[in-house]
Design a protein around this nucleic acid. Structure first.
Lengths: 260, 260
DNA sequence: ACTCGCCTTTCTGTCGACAATAAGGTATGG
DNA sequence: CCATACCTTATTGTCGACAGAAAGGCGAGT
């Protein structure tokens, strides 16, 4: 029996109480990322959020079993909505479901992470160009406000809050870019790397570097220099990958990774 | 009650018998595209294939209701596997499921199609570069063989067979490119446009133009000119979109669409 | 004839139960 | 002591039933 789930939280409804800033903001954001807005059967959403957040925050480890009967007990429901929630998470790459085997928390190879960042890098470049062309003055104001908050988070060394602010900023840029398909793909890719990104931000100096990158990107957009914005976004993405690789696998040397 | 499903096929197992060439090849290809290999509960696969093929072939029209109880009767199963199959198709964008409403065949706006092609265009350019760098001699032989078959299909004006050959060729290129994530995204995008692509190939001259495009792309790969391959793939994708837009919405003028 | 609201029917989401299968543990043999 | 085969247990996938929500039809009122 998999006891890990039973140990890792108590009530099932409120397993937060960890972060000081925004207790349910991340749930709201995750609901958007998982597209749970439309498909809002309460039980399904509840399970998907708890498991999804658990994976992203590292409470549930890669490869760990996700026992559907135990989850159903935890949420006082039957296995049907649990299975549905797990399938939703599977479609976003957070969970692996193979026939007749226990669902597991998805595990990435280093190769897979490189792949994701390679695609992300190029898609974010597209976003950079599109967002520069499409951003209204209000959009710029909104983005600037977000950046200010992120700067404050960074100054306070509040990694968690900065992290989610960063996620929301990229989501907003994708929205402004006006290509829902592109946004959906980026959301999906973002989800798969959330846990890694979160960890990489904890590295010394990484937070400051990220803030600096985001500021330069915003300035390029503000000056309507789409090519520059695209290039900066691309480089910032490569930098994020490098940070992840150093943190996660302890890159033997400091060579920048040429994402393939 | 939705009678459409009941009318549009009889047995539920074999609803092909339409094309002369490869009766189940397209099922095999669709199984790959829908990633049903690993998740091979027979009932689920059966339903997903029947509905998915129905959507792609146009047997099931956009917006049409997908009554789960009727589908379960059709396949002598309960609604559980049917629901699961529909969720799989939803995650690939072929079906829309909203809470407490009937699942429907997904309907695209023209805007959405443009979005998809905009992303596809850029991702295929990436594939062009990667595949040129990574293709072994055997890969080239295999691609050449595919192209030969496609030429024959085109000469025989066998749109259906050419169409699936084209799908398989792009799948193979993505595979050779060696980025599974990229391949997965392209598969997903491809699925959503299969029905449109199929229709657009029926336009006079479109088949020949497509063959010509594919040949030039292959030659660029063969000569290891990645940049050219990328550019040609991008242009071919734009051309495909133009064909779709003319066919589907009867473009008022002949101006090439600048995919946005 | 047309609109609005009620009522019936149909369908979805959920549940607990059951058979089949995988996982894990135990005993057996080398 | 380790490996293998068997057996027990736990877990999955499926089913039919049921409550509640949509959808559609019907009638009353204008």
């Amino acid at each position: 029996m998999t006891r890990a789930i039973a140990e890792s939280a108590v009530a099932g409804q409120e397993s937060d109480a960890v972060s000081p800033a925004a207790p349910q903001d991340r749930s709201v954001e995750l609901i958007r990322l998982l597209k749970l807005n439309e498909r809002r059967e309460p039980a399904v959403v509840q399970v998907a959020l708890w498991v999804g957040l658990g994976i992203i925050e590292g409470r549930l480890k890669p490869g760990e079993d996700l026992n559907s009967v135990e989850l159903s007990h935890r949420f006082n429901s039957s296995r049907t909505p649990v299975r549905e929630a797990l399938m939703l998470l599977e479609s976003e790459g957070l969970v692996e479901i193979r026939a007749r085997k226990r669902p597991r928390v998805a595990a990435f190879t280093e190769q897979r992470v490189r792949e994701i960042y390679y695609v992300r890098q190029h898609l974010l470049a597209l976003v950079g160009e599109l967002v520069t062309a499409a951003a209204t003055d209000e959009d710029l104001v909104s983005m600037r406000a977000r950046l200010t908050r992120m700067e404050q988070d960074a100054a306070a060394n509040d990694i968690d809050s900065y992290f989610w602010g960063h996620v929301e900023l990229q989501e907003e840029m994708a929205r402004i870019a006006g290509n829902e398909t592109l946004k959906g793909i980026l959301d999906s890719l973002a989800l798969r790397t959330l846990i890694l990104r979160h960890a990489s931000l904890a590295q010394p100096g990484r937070l400051a570097a990220s803030v600096s990158d985001q500021l330069r990107i915003f300035e390029a957009i503000e000056r309507r220099d789409g090519q520059l914005a695209a290039m900066l976004l691309e480089r910032a993405t490569v930098a994020a990958l490098n940070a992840i690789e150093m943190g996660e696998w302890g890159s033997d040397d400091g060579n920048p990774v040429t994402a393939r």
